[in-house]
Design a protein around this nucleic acid. Structure first.
Lengths: 211, 211
DNA sequence: CACTGTGAACCCGTTCACAGCA
DNA sequence: TGCTGTGAACGGGTTCACAGTG
């Protein structure tokens, strides 16, 4: 796969296109021949149609000129590109409020993400279950990542311990981390890290409320 | 305030700088004269030092050449710029898992965000409390936004009802919305909307795991 | 000397506009 | 005719490099 020079925002948008198509297929009962144009997707997603065509063109020629994109086929291609045709093993480090919410979020299973365990250092939580998922001692995280061949780690621990836990994840052989802790964590370049920072989103809003 | 032409990513970074300074002041016991350089902040945040200087320069000359930025003063300025020296009234629409997690998240109070109410359409939830915050019928959202002069609405409802609830928020006079629902919502241009899309973050990771 | 503030160069994603094709 | 695919222009954020200054 020639996965080079593709802007990461493009990947984010592919994810939006995919969800858009899924929604249509869900509601309109999969008609094999249905076609959607870049303008149609633009209408729903609010993204510029030229942008959509360019994004898709990075990965192939999925459309038919004069018509548009075959809905079912494009959806399948997007799944493949994003890796959503596979199962992914996930663990969650941190059994706090956000960790709980993520465990219970049903959208993940639907997209092929399987939560294989939760980790915490609180003795009151260790050994219990959260929505049928076992809570392990954080000390075991490295071992279990290796044993279960976990792909993705979700960091929802306090900022102070984020780096430390991330290091353990990497030691266990994890390849990607979604970091909710509000700190910059430093890891080997081959580890893919995405940061989700809720405070930033809030503080961005208040800024604009002042003007 | 000359709040024009400033990239929104700059605002996000200001928020990071602010948190960085807060952290230092917290741990090192506020020394009024302490100075930090753009290189120092760069070290901690992983952001290019020229970038940091340029971001700060949008809002004034806070530093001293040859020395750096006075820690306490810069922190105060950032607070002012981001509007974190004020109290903000917030409501949450949707008492699901994520809504619950947000209510319980203590970082908000610390930053001046006061949650004034939660809204849901589930009769089993209406009238109860979540972490001392009352759960109202979603039908009352417009009324209460107006009565309580709410600034910010958090949308954590299902995608299907996101637009509808957002419209109600706007009708009530809300000025900014943080949208966790995975749909594109259309609102008047004067309403500031930020989207937080967790699925996108996950699907971005799986893409990179394939290459 | 060290570090800020900033014009200029650079880089890269977005948008335009249109040739190509069903 | 209608819409894709794409080269080219555009726009704007990032990085560089250095003058300015305590």
């Amino acid at each position: 796969m020639k996965r080079k020079n593709i802007p990461s925002v493009t990947i984010n948008r592919l994810s939006i296109y995919h969800r858009c198509l899924e929604k249509i297929l869900e509601t309109e009962k999969a008609e094999e021949f249905k076609i959607i144009s870049s303008f149609g997707i633009a209408e729903i997603t609010g993204i510029n149609s030229a942008q959509i065509r360019k994004d898709l063109a990075y990965f192939g020629e999925f459309g038919k000129r004069g018509l548009g994109y075959p809905l079912v086929n494009l959806n399948r291609e997007l799944k493949k590109i994003l890796g959503l045709d596979k199962k992914w093993s996930v663990i969650i480090a941190g059994a706090g409020n956000l960790g709980k919410a993520l465990v219970k979020y049903k959208g993940f299973q639907k997209r092929g993400f399987v939560i294989k365990g939760i980790f915490d250092n609180n003795p009151l939580k260790i050994g219990k279950k959260l929505d049928h998922i076992f809570i392990y001692d954080i000390k075991e995280i490295e071992k279990i990542i290796r044993a279960e061949n976990i792909n993705i780690g979700i960091l929802v621990v306090p900022a102070d311990s984020a780096q430390e836990v991330a290091d353990k994840m990497v030691a266990g052989g994890i390849k990607a981390i979604l970091n909710f802790a509000p700190v910059h964590i430093v890891l080997p370049p081959e580890i893919k890290v995405h940061n989700v920072d809720l405070s930033i989103e809030f503080e961005g809003l208040t800024y604009y409320l002042l003007s």
